[in-house]
């Protein structure tokens, strides 16, 4: 069985994101870029499944500009067997990414596609379920535990009121939540080994997609909370709460 892992490059989670002064976008010059943390968890899960002998190959795919290959090399260093780079200089919306992934799925025929439950840049959380719909296969989103047995996946999902367990027939789409695993650190020899692994590049345009997308009107900073006060004692705290009518 093969596993396809979709990753997205985002501004690193540790960076405090700022708007450009003309509000045309966010500041990316000199800013650290990384694989979306949820996608890193997806890759880690795929590698663990392969290491347990339940999968033969882990293929990682991404859509992005030329230099996104830096992140694909990281994915290969983590342990992916090969990578597919769909090259696009413009940002691509989830529905288009789902169509691209669907085309790859039809070629690769994976038993499992794993991706993050959301990217930490646009926070949309759409690509996984959209792919599952286009593919006509079941989905398990927000997964914090995954086991495979006899062509069936048992997925524990983090839902609003607790943990839900689903049984799903393979092939399927899984989106990851934070507690599924902790991704491994990349070691120096792995970086060397990754240089030998193949990355295939294809232009986004070759997929013949021309889907209408959302129109971005503008970006703005969120309303600031005005700064508060410090109190020196618990008694003063309760007095403040009483005055504000919240207790």
């Amino acid at each position: 069985m093969k596993i396809l892992v979709a990753v997205k490059r985002v501004i690193d989670y540790s960076v405090r994101v700022r708007l450009k002064p003309d509000r045309s976008g966010v500041v990316t010059d000199g800013v650290k870029l990384s694989i979306n943390p949820f996608d890193e968890i997806a890759l880690e899960e795929a590698l663990r499944i392969r290491e347990r002998g339940e999968a033969s190959e882990v293929v990682v795919a991404t859509v992005g500009p030329r230099d996104v290959q830096t992140q694909l090399r990281s994915a290969l260093a983590m342990g992916a067997d090969r990578a597919i780079h769909i090259e696009s200089t413009d940002p691509v919306e989830p529905l288009s990414v789902a169509h691209v992934l669907h085309a790859l799925v039809l070629e690769i025929e994976p038993g499992l596609v794993i991706l993050g439950k959301q990217a930490i840049d646009d926070d949309l959380g759409q690509t996984g379920p959209m792919l599952a719909a286009l593919w006509g296969r079941p989905q398990a989103t927000f997964v914090s535990k995954l086991t495979l047995k006899d062509g069936v996946a048992l997925a524990v999902r983090e839902v609003d009121h607790g943990l839900e367990t689903l049984a799903l027939d393979l092939p399927l789409v899984v989106t990851t939540d934070l507690r599924l695993n902790t991704p491994r650190f990349i070691k120096m020899p792995d970086i060397m080994k990754a240089r030998q692994k193949p990355i295939v590049t294809r232009p986004f345009a070759s997929f013949g997609l021309d889907l209408p997308g959302l129109v971005l009107e503008r970006l703005e900073g969120p309303p600031e909370r005005k700064s508060g006060i410090r109190v020196e004692s618990v008694a003063a705290l309760v007095t403040q709460l009483r005055e504000r009518g919240v207790v």
Binding site: R16, L19, D121, D123, V215, E217, L219, P222
Partner: peptide, 17 residues
């Protein structure tokens, strides 16, 4: 909101969909 709500974005869904 995008970027964990640190930036707000205004989007329009085009006519016909």
């Amino acid at each position: 909101g995008i970027y964990a709500g640190n930036i707000h974005t205004v989007v329009t869904v085009p006519d016909g969909m």
